[in-house]
C-alpha cells in the first residue's frame, strides 16, 4: 500500500502514483481517501446526470476513459479503478491521480481550483487557467528563479469561511511538455513521461517550499492566465496585470474551478463566491495577459516581480 498527502488529505492507494507527496503510514488515523483496484461497472443505475463518458447517481460518480481506464468515485472518499483493454495501470494512473482525484474533491465539497501555485514570501500565489493556458510552464519558470513549488494543476483552498485561507499542494513535480523542458533548459531535472506514449514528463522543481512535505501555505493572490491576442494585442501592450473587482473575480474564480461544470452540477456556486471574496481579502484576483511565447517569458517574470513589489508581497521574501 502507498500513502500520500494529496490536497491536504491522507490518501492510501494500491497503485504507486508518481509525482505525489509520499508520507509514512499512520497506524492511528484512518485515511481520508482510499484508492483501490476493483470491479467498475460500465454504467450506473438510476443516474441523475450524464456526459459523453461519465454518469452521476446520488453520491456516486462514474468516469470512463474508453480503452484506458474507468473508475467510480464514492462520496468524496473512495476511488475504485479498473483498466480497460490491455492498458497497464502505470499508463492509466495519471487519470486517477489527476482527473479522478480532482472530481473527487468536487464531490467532497472542497473548493478546488484549476491552477498551479508557487511560494512567494511564504505564501502561495495561484496561476489559473484551462488546460494549455501555461500554468505549469509559468510555475516551472518561477521555480527556476527560486520560487518554491506548491502545485502543478490542482489547488484545493480551505478555510474559506473566515480567517486564513490555505492552499494545499497537489504533488512534488511539474508536468511539462518536451518543448517547455527544452525552452526552460530543464532536461536534467526531467524524469519519466506522464504516460508512456506522451512527450510530457515529470520534472523536479528547482526550488522546494514547505509544501514539499504536504503542508498548506496561506493564499497570497490568484492570477487568471490569458493569452494576449487581437484585439488586445494591437494596442501595443504585451504583458498586463489587471486587478479584478469582486464581481469579475467571482466570475473568474468560478470559471477556473478544476471542473466548472461540476460546480454548477453540484450546486457549489456559493463556495466559489466565498473563495473569490477570500482571495480578494488575501491580496486580490488579477488577470495576467501575455503572449504565449517563450521569448517573452523574462518579461512576464519581470512584470510579476514588479507586481509583487508594488503589492508588498515581495517584502515578505526579505
Amino acid at each position: 500500500m502507498f500513502h500520500y498527502v494529496m490536497s491536504g488529505l491522507r490518501v492510501t492507494s494500491d497503485l504507486a502514483m508518481p509525482g505525489l507527496i509520499e508520507t509514512a503510514a499512520t497506524a492511528s488515523a484512518a485515511p481520508d481517501v482510499r484508492i483501490r483496484q476493483g470491479e467498475v461497472p460500465l454504467a450506473l443505475d438510476d443516474c441523475d446526470a450524464s456526459g459523453p463518458n461519465w454518469q452521476m447517481a446520488d453520491d456516486r460518480f462514474l468516469l470512463r476513459i474508453p480503452g484506458i481506464v474507468r473508475m467510480t468515485l464514492d462520496a468524496g472518499t473512495a476511488i475504485t479503478w479498473q483498466c480497460e483493454g490491455d492498458t497497464r495501470p502505470e499508463d492509466a494512473v495519471i487519470f486517477i491521480s489527476g482527473s479522478g482525484f480532482g472530481l473527487l474533491m468536487h464531490q467532497h465539497g472542497r473548493c478546488i481550483m484549476h491552477g498551479s501555485a508557487v511560494a512567494v514570501g511564504g505564501r502561495a500565489v495561484l496561476f489559473c487557467g484551462p488546460s494549455g493556458a501555461g500554468k505549469s510552464t509559468l510555475a516551472a519558470a518561477l521555480a527556476a528563479r527560486g520560487f518554491g513549488h506548491v502545485a502543478d494543476d490542482q489547488c484545493v483552498l480551505s478555510g474559506l469561511a473566515g480567517g486564513e485561507v490555505l492552499v494545499h499542494p497537489d504533488g512534488r513535480a511539474h508536468k511539462l511538455w518536451e518543448q517547455a523542458i527544452t525552452k526552460l533548459d530543464l532536461a536534467e531535472r526531467s524524469g519519466d513521461p506522464v504516460r508512456s506514449a506522451l512527450r510530457k514528463f515529470f520534472v523536479a522543481p528547482q526550488a522546494a517550499s514547505p509544501a514539499e512535505s504536504g503542508a498548506a501555505l496561506p493564499l497570497a493572490a490568484i492570477y487568471i492566465l490569458a493569452e494576449a491576442r487581437a484585439p488586445d494585442l494591437v494596442k501595443g501592450e504585451k504583458v498586463t496585470i489587471t486587478p479584478l473587482n469582486l464581481a469579475d473575480a467571482a466570475i473568474a474564480v468560478r470559471a477556473n474551478a478544476y471542473r466548472p461544470a461540476m460546480v454548477e452540477r453540484l450546486g457549489q456556486a456559493g463556495l466559489y463566491l466565498q473563495a473569490a471574496a477570500a482571495a480578494q481579502r488575501a491580496g486580490g484576483v488579477f488577470r495576467l495577459v501575455r503572449p504565449m511565447n517563450f521569448e517573452v517569458m523574462d518579461e512576464v517574470l519581470a512584470a510579476l516581480a514588479r507586481h509583487w513589489e508594488d503589492t508588498g508581497l515581495a517584502e515578505r521574501v526579505a
Partner: peptide, 11 residues
C-alpha cells in the same frame, strides 16, 4: 475537457 471532465492533453 469541460464536457468529458478529463484533460484531453493526457490522451
Amino acid at each position: 475537457d469541460d464536457t468529458c471532465l478529463i484533460a484531453s492533453g493526457l490522451l
